[in-house]
Design a protein around this nucleic acid. Structure first.
Lengths: 152, 152
DNA sequence: AGATTGCTTGCTTCGTCAAGCAATTAGTTC
DNA sequence: GAACTAATTGCTTGACGAAGCAAGCAATCT
């Protein structure tokens, strides 16, 4: 029932990296989310949702696409959009070409909220992450992380 | 109610990095956890818990320290240890020097489980992460991520 | 009509916060 | 120093919110 053959063990550097990354993966989203909630009363998931919508053509996206863009399940997305709708930041509009589909549309209020919130997000990202990258080739790292994030 | 002054905007490289990292932060833990559950029926949190215990002197740790080591709240830790205890992988033993305290102790069964599971974890980490880092100075990155992960 | 797609809802699980219980330490009085 | 109370610390439990899966409903496609 075990895997075929054991993978190559980690080098010490890899070991260090993986350990630190494990901590980071858990800690960073929480730290940023905590900042957003504390300073803007806007959880990170909701911020990301508004963000994605703001970048989409006509400020709208279908639920399924939005879920993918936000790294969320479709049902999770439904609930978040419902929440945002309740606060007037998003509206649900039937899809033009397919009446099964719904678009989540960013309202003006939602856009205003987003513009209010992004400096907080940015500051948080800088403080918890970017500020610690001295001596790192950011362009190169960005490309690597893109590769990592873009797989399956 | 807004922050004092807007932080320096992102350079294009930073922008790319942050976007990718945001995706990564959500996707990577899930991907690895999914692998662990699918192939070993052992969620990542539980794996990490066993891991931390296995590295501690006398294979034991106090609940509070363990929670910190696992990036978890104390109550969350309580529930996970309860779960692991129910499966015979961990035992609870009163603390010698402070009768309020409890040690979570890794049993032989727990250690065996861990040794069974680590190749799966390692393979998953390689596949989802390390394999994509070509062209990156791993030692340098490791140090940077350590700095990032070690702050508050 | 039957199969498929798009979204929502019911149920369950997980983890956090706040409250609670138990043991220890600090402080006060004698 | 002993005896007793108050404050603190360590962990668990209850209630809750968040997110996932699976089942359901509605609209479309063949």
């Amino acid at each position: 029932m075990t895997t075929a053959r054991p993978p190559r063990p980690l080098t010490p550097d890899e070991e260090t990296l993986v350990r630190a990354l494990t901590r980071l993966m858990y800690a960073l989203p929480r730290a940023i989310d905590a900042d957003m909630v504390r300073e803007q009363r806007l959880p990170l998931v909701e911020y990301i949702t508004l963000m994605r919508l703001s970048e989409a053509p006509r400020r709208r996206m279908r639920m399924g696409d939005l879920a993918v863009a936000c790294e969320l399940s479709l049902s999770g997305m439904t609930r978040i959009v419902t929440r945002l709708e309740g606060q007037g930041m998003v509206e649900r509009v039937r899809c033009d070409d397919d009446a099964r589909g719904w678009n989540a549309v960013l309202t003006d209020a939602g856009l205003a909220r987003l513009e209010n919130a992004w400096p907080v997000n940015l500051a948080s990202v800088r403080r918890h992450f970017l500020d610690h990258l001295e001596g790192i080739d950011v362009a190169r790292l960005a490309r690597a992380v893109q590769r990592v994030a873009g797989d399956g």
